[in-house]
Design a protein around this nucleic acid. Structure first.
Length: 874
RNA sequence: GGGCGCAUGGCUCAGCUGGUUAGAGCGCCACAUUCACAUUGUGGAGAUCGAAGGUUCGAAUCCUUCUGCGCCCACCA
């Protein structure tokens, strides 16, 4: 006899079992040629990161996959690690410095970087600890960091390889510049958001006649200081005689030409566009084409520079206001129209991006994209859900070169050196002291670091330290991630895989939804709508967190969360706990040792046991199918309803009175034991806790085999037979509720069926019917004929009948029903008269009238039912 | 401008290749507590599956159009 508390206490067991798994090295994977490998690389969280619901969902899915495949006997490796997250981490450390009143420049590069490392030492393990808390079965001995020495070496190697291949180049282009972070960003790091702005119409006077103007429309008047031309469409009649003439750029009084270019849209604004080649990508192209001057009027921090004349040192948006005022004063501001536009925003600090002309390093992407496109098109790599394929292909087919240099300090420094003597550029894997070209010049290394994603894109292979492991575990199996990083990471890993490994990095990409709050907003600290997974763990337990998260996440759909949703998971864990407690209390250890096969062979399993076994294997089959097709919610919900509604609500209730029967003991035990194994990937802790109590000499549940489907046990006939019994019990319960007969009152029941098989079934199942419906031994008959004073339920090929005599006072019951009927009739009458009232129709709002009509309809239906009941009794 | 997703009981959502009575959780109503579990059990009410067409023996499911919401992409001065 085992004594257990009636509530599952997750806090008391989780750390214990996690510690055991870890100490026994159950998470560790080694190449084993006898086994099939199954590999997942974790999307490395930022070192400074803190676990949020997105992580919880992402990693629960991965853990389910890993545990499932591990139990299926595959050599399963989940490779963990963290990302140095260049800009994000630098910003965090800078913020903490700011509290001391310091800037990173005050420390200098080297000291600042050591500060970041210190920071990492202190906080870098937080996210790892938190991943352990949610039960992640990563091979922690392989923990990697994108700034690890050998990982960094791979980054440098790759840079050099691409450079030597001519796929990396340096050049001056318009890039996305964040004036706050003061660095270049890739296009992906500068997402566009809508803004409500204005279209400003500015007058530029002609040199030949200062009273004559050309009017240009712009959303960014402050850039006019850097204008070097005005462009019109050559077909535009309005400006026919003006092309080639000279304008005086107001405020700076610089001479600029009017040029003609067919790219100018005649319908937009005035059809004349100011050209600022150093501050707009379109204008840049125009500037190149027409050989215009490039005048950069801003400092890197977004303030106007020396070329901005009187506006020097003003912030770009401040300058905008002042410039507009000055133009207005001079009568050169024609008008202002509201205009919706969108602008790039820094993905780290949300500052509006400045398109900025500067010298940066780029990767030529088109050649890399080619095999990556092909692989997906040919189905070598599959996206789940499939629709992401299109998103991926669309991006890949229009891919732009990747700006990879960042003007920050935290990250992989570019392996690029410049010679002061001959201006030579040296790209080298190893540090360079003297210029190999001129042999004498002093050399200095490029100050920039690489884009964080330039290291992340190597993750599926650079995380392997030796060739043997790489060969065995690569390509990896599944990548699990959110849609936000398809371009940042997934697409680039596919490219790098083919480029550097000559092989895809993974076979399947599972894209799960974004975690949102119940109003559909993204969870974020600034919105204050965060549900902290660790708090949920504290309150409800890890298994509850995992189970709830999974069961409400439909494939690829966004997840809407509120705290109450985790109650479902907690309640389920508690249900498992109590059912197990019940079984443990009633289990005779010696009886249970009997092999289930003994019963199968004899084919003498009782219908109830045949049914529950069939239901278990049917469920298992579906669970397998759904896990294999990434429908985790379906799998979870199948387990939920099997365990709760079939195993607990029906099976355990059925066998309760015969629980010491050997066959029942064996089946009950086996079902629980197999269920625990099946549920383990979803709820690792509670399943382990119960497993240990159930099979004390057994090893941990996490290294047990996944239950094998016994196809021959799936018996649809047994299932439908029991369903007929359940139908009867339900019907009787239903009638009892209708007649308000309490369960303490055992009543008579008659069952009729013209089918001999059914009659026999009822007879053999009568003890269960008696127990669960609280009735006396049923009287079983062949043909049902309607008799007064009986309450009837019509079933599938059968009738269940409760004789009312002695159960309820027929006259009283009749009177009660009669009263209800009268009541309903009165209500109908009153509703009808309301509706017939012409004043009501005139004055009441339409929805009220409709509502009343609806109510009337419902009342009439209810009346009909009641009249039927009365007919039955009479 | 292009693309994608969503619209199903009061709320939040499942519903895979179209197939008997459209499911769940929460909420609501009634009844039940010496019996594994009130984090429970039993029963119930509540849905013309966003709208309009179409394909089909049959549509929540496939097609077209429309409406509303959300997201992504795009060099919309």
């Amino acid at each position: 006899m085992i004594e257990l508390p009636s509530r599952y206490d997750p806090g008391a067991v989780e750390d214990k079992w996690y510690g055991l798994w870890e100490s026994k090295k159950y998470f560790c994977a080694k190449p084993d040629l006898k086994k099939k490998p199954f590999t997942i690389v974790i999307p490395p969280p930022n070192v400074t990161g803190i676990l949020h619901m997105g992580h919880a969902l992402n990693n629960t899915i991965q853990d389910i996959l890993i545990r499932y495949h591990r139990m299926k006997g595959e050599e399963s490796l989940w490779m963990p690690g963290t990302d140095h997250a260049g800009i994000a981490t630098q910003n965090v450390v800078e913020k903490s410095l700011a509290k001391e009143g310091l800037k990173r420049q005050d420390l200098g590069r080297e000291k600042f970087i050591s500060r970041v490392w210190e920071w990492r030492e202190q906080y870098g393990s937080t996210i790892i600890r938190q991943l352990k808390k949610i039960g992640a079965s990563c091979d922690w001995e392989r923990l990697r960091f994108t700034m690890d020495e050998d990982y960094s070496k791979s980054v440098v190697d790759v840079f050099v390889k691409l450079y030597e291949k001519g796929l990396i180049y340096r050049g001056s282009y318009i890039i996305n510049w964040c004036p706050r972070c003061q660095t270049a960003l890739s296009d992906e790091e500068a997402p566009h958001h809508d803004l409500q702005g204005n279209l400003y119409f500015l007058k530029y006077p002609l040199k030949s006649n200062p009273d004559e103007f050309i009017i240009v429309a712009t959303t960014r008047p402050e850039t006019m200081l850097g204008d070097t031309a005005v462009a019109v469409n050559p077909k535009d009649k309005r400006y026919k005689g003006l092309v080639g003439k000279t304008l005086i750029l107001p405020l700076v009084n610089r001479e600029i030409k009017i040029i003609a270019d067919s790219s100018v849209d005649m319908k937009f604004g005035t059809g004349a566009v100011k050209v600022t080649p150093a501050h707009d990508p379109n204008d840049y192209a125009l500037g190149k084409k027409h050989k215009l001057e490039f005048i950069n009027v801003m400092y890197p921090d977004g303030k106007m520079n020396g070329l901005a004349g009187d506006y020097k040192d003003m912030d770009r948006f401040e300058a905008r206001g002042v410039i507009l005022e000055d133009l207005k004063e001079k009568g050169l501001l024609e008008k202002i129209e509201p205009h919706a536009l969108s602008a790039g925003h820094c993905y780290r600090c949300h500052t509006i991006i400045e398109p900025y002309l500067s010298k940066q390093w780029f990767v030529k992407m088109k050649p890399l994209a080619k095999p990556a496109i092909e692989a997906v098109k040919k189905g070598k790599i599959k996206f789940h859900p499939e629709r992401w394929t299109k998103v991926y292909l669309n991006w890949m087919e229009n891919i732009q070169d990747w700006c990879i240099s960042r003007q920050i300090w935290w990250g992989h420094r570019l392996p690029v050196y410049y010679c002061k003597g001959c201006d030579g550029v040296i790209v080298s894997k190893t540090p360079v002291q003297t210029c190999p070209k001129c042999k004498k010049g002093e050399v200095y290394q490029d100050e920039d670091v690489l884009d964080t994603w330039f290291s992340s894109w190597l993750w599926p292979f650079a995380t392997f330290k030796n060739k043997e492991d790489l060969k065995y575990f690569y390509p990896t199996s599944v990548l699990v991630t959110a849609p936000e990083i398809i371009f940042f990471w997934v697409a680039r890993m596919i490219m790098s895989g083919f480029e550097f490994m000559k092989e895809k990095p993974f076979s399947d990409v599972y894209i799960h939804g974004t975690v949102r709050d119940i109003e559909g907003k993204k969870m974020s600290k600034s919105l204050g709508n965060v549900i902290d997974p660790l708090e949920i763990i504290k309150e409800y337990g890890t298994d509850a967190l995992r189970f709830s998260l999974i069961s409400i996440t439909a494939q690829g759909q966004d997840v809407f969360l509120s705290k109450e949703r985790f109650e479902q998971g907690r309640n389920f864990a508690n249900k498992i706990w109590n059912a197990s407690r019940f079984i443990l209390m009633n289990l005779d250890a010696d009886k249970v040792k009997v092999d289930l096969c003994v019963y199968f062979k004899k084919e003498n399993l009782s219908p109830v046991n045949r049914w529950i076994l069939s239901r278990f294997y049917s469920t298992l089959k579906e669970v397998n199918k759904n896990l294999d097709s990434f429908r985790f919610n379906e799998a979870a919900n199948l387990l939920y309803s099997f365990f709760w509604h079939e195993f607990c609500d029906w099976y355990l209730e059925l066998i309760k009175s015969e629980i010491k029967n050997e066959e029942n003991q064996v089946v009950m035990y086996k079902i629980l034991e197999k269920f625990l194994r099946t549920a383990h990937p979803f709820m690792p802790f509670i399943t382990e806790e119960i497993w240990q109590k159930l099979a004390p000499e057994g090893d941990s549940i996490m290294i047990q085999p996944w239950p094998h489907i016994q196809e021959e046990i799936i018996d649809k006939k047994a299932e439908s037979g029991m369903n007929a019994v359940f139908e009867i019990i339900n019907a009787i319960r239903n009638m009892r509720a209708e007649l308000e007969v309490p369960l303490t009152n055992i009543i008579d029941v008659k069952l009729y069926s013209s089918s001999k098989a059914k009659r026999e079934l009822f007879k053999s199942m009568s003890r269960y019917i008696k127990n669960l419906a609280k009735v006396n031994e049923p009287v079983i008959g062949e043909h049902y004929t309607h008799t007064k004073g009986e309450f009837v339920a019509v079933l599938n090929e059968a009738h269940a009948v409760i004789p009312l005599a002695g159960v309820v006072d027929i006259d009283k019951y009749k009177a009660k029903v009669g009263l209800k009927i009268e009541n309903a009739r009165a209500q109908i009458k009153s509703k009808e008269s309301t509706l017939a009232n012409p004043n009501f129709a005139k004055r009441a709002p339409l929805e009220i009238v409709e509502g009343e009509k609806e109510k009337l309809k419902n009342l009439k239906e209810a009346l009909k039912k009641l009249e039927g009941v009365l007919d039955g009794i009479r």
